[in-house]
Nucleic acid binder design. Sequence first.
DNA 1: GTTAGCACTCTAACCTGGTGAGTGCTAACG
DNA 2: CGTTAGCACTCACCAGGTTAGAGTGCTAAC
Lengths: 345, 345
Amino acid sequence: MLKLNLRKIRILEAIINDYIAHAEPIGSRTIAKKYDLGISSATIRNEMSDLEEMGYIVAPHASSGRVPSDKGYRLYVDEVMPNKRLPQEHQEYLQQSITQNLSHIDLLMRDLARAISFVTNYTTVAADFLAKRHKIKHIQLVPVGESTFALMLITDLKAVKNRVLALPRTQTVGNATAGRISAELTKILADADADDLSNKLYLGRTRQRFYDMHIDPDFAEPLIAAIVDALSSADNVQIYIGGVKNILEFPEFANVDKARAVVGALEEKDGLITLLADNSEEIQIIIGAENKNVMLKDCSVIKAKIRINEHFYGNIAIIGPTRMDYSQAVSVLQNMAASNTERRV
Amino acid sequence: MLKLNLRKIRILEAIINDYIAHAEPIGSRTIAKKYDLGISSATIRNEMSDLEEMGYIVAPHASSGRVPSDKGYRLYVDEVMPNKRLPQEHQEYLQQSITQNLSHIDLLMRDLARAISFVTNYTTVAADFLAKRHKIKHIQLVPVGESTFALMLITDLKAVKNRVLALPRTQTVGNATAGRISAELTKILADADADDLSNKLYLGRTRQRFYDMHIDPDFAEPLIAAIVDALSSADNVQIYIGGVKNILEFPEFANVDKARAVVGALEEKDGLITLLADNSEEIQIIIGAENKNVMLKDCSVIKAKIRINEHFYGNIAIIGPTRMDYSQAVSVLQNMAASNTERRV
DNA sequence: GTTAGCACTCTAACCTGGTGAGTGCTAACG
DNA sequence: CGTTAGCACTCACCAGGTTAGAGTGCTAAC
């Protein structure tokens, strides 16, 4: 790709900063006046003409100012964007929502999403993708009613997963037997995670143990299936949303169609899971039409892993208009990924 | 209140029906042409003038057509509205979302909210207010980690409530002891509901039992508190929302401020709980400014209890613009309140 | 009591011209 | 030869004026 000279970059930066702040097309004369670049508006005009030709900025209509394009934001984000530092108070505020809820993953996610949308004025979505990392700590099978059982599964991260299931009453399984089965299951499957459970060996050993205990396979099989399901099922993924109405505050969503699109996207759990799930990089920025979900084509998404004390807790994304304060959003999420409670707990 | 003559009622009805369908102010001439009332536009004009004076309709501006006022809708809803019958297919569709999830209150609520917003094109919110009606069926205390315990509470409606709590290790409470305590608690508290638990006698008996079992009060008290909390706590209330973006489809919410207000209202769980909680009547209609929540002042809410096979399951509300199809919404909710699965399960 | 007729009102849509921010081009400057 | 001043041109936006249409209120006649 053609490398831009420094002056073009400075001009692009000025356009983007101004547009982020004021949401209005900006012209050469205005740049010359407001930003001290040491060159005249005519020169800026020529450079802007080049930038437009290269696709970094666009004019909404002939003879109006220019507006950054997705490609322009991309360049800015990748190469130009300064590393903003989060104000102390915000940092502490966010830290608080974590430290206050360390033992409760769901409260942590909920408060974190709220706190971030409060600090940034954007919308925040978070997902708990722990399912695959949780390790079984305790399994409890409890008879309830005729042939109904409740299965409780407690993990090392203190999450509790339930399944209510019907099991055939081929043999009487009362409280005592259920207790025995629970103890046995806990012994066999302790420390197993979802990956382990997909391992045949593991399950084979479990089946063998049931056999030794004279438990009917008709009873054992659905039970094992329920355990696997409880630990790894996708609908274990919980979505937390904060500040939906924030995004409606931005003038770009004064257009009802655009507002509808975003709200629609935020309502679809599956779409949000897809959005949050795929994350190769530590912090990922998706700009406008880069979004696979067309309903988000006027939005940018800044996505990060939540990592606390070396543990991976889930993913979180800040959603705003393409004209959003990328620098701030990134600094907020860097703060997340780096948050380490050791020093204060 | 002054009783309106039949002709005024017919005219009001025509205005409301037309406005519900087209969202545009309607004038005397249009009524005369479109609705066969057997009187001329001049007469209608006179009657409309009266209706306006009485506050049932308002003119958005001088010399424009009239629009129903909240008071007008109120009269319509209370006295005039026909009893629409829900199309067979919709009835079956809604019935399905219930029968498919009879054993899972949370899935039932979720699907019901979705189904209703799909059928009506309005937004639907539902709340599970069962907390107070659930009866304890089984209590299970499970040791996890150092001094941490998981409390599982299964109710007669097959809901599972969890609490993770820290209890002092004043004495060793291993799996065996925990099992004994669980069995004992289940025995003492079986069939108790939230009201029973607020009854001193009940709790006294529980405490006595702990004492007899040589369980330290420092251990017993937080445990009892957790049980009470798990059964009756307000954050047990789960809110289910369907079709948020539906409401943005209506022209009255093309105005971003109004859209923001509604979305804001739907984001505040506490507000929704308040909205859904208070329900003296079986089906209640709240019109426009009658809403206590000012963010909903441009909306109407039609609220009902969900009752299935004599059981009270929770409350559900349809939220739309004040210009909404009250008749349809009411018929949908009547369908809910009356739904009886006996005949097909 | 009902209705036809009429003067009047008000909005929405359309045009019109002026203003200002912006562009692109050209020629001159250092 | 890059930079800049100057200028003609474009276009959105705004204010003001006009018209058409839907509606009202009033009055007089049926």
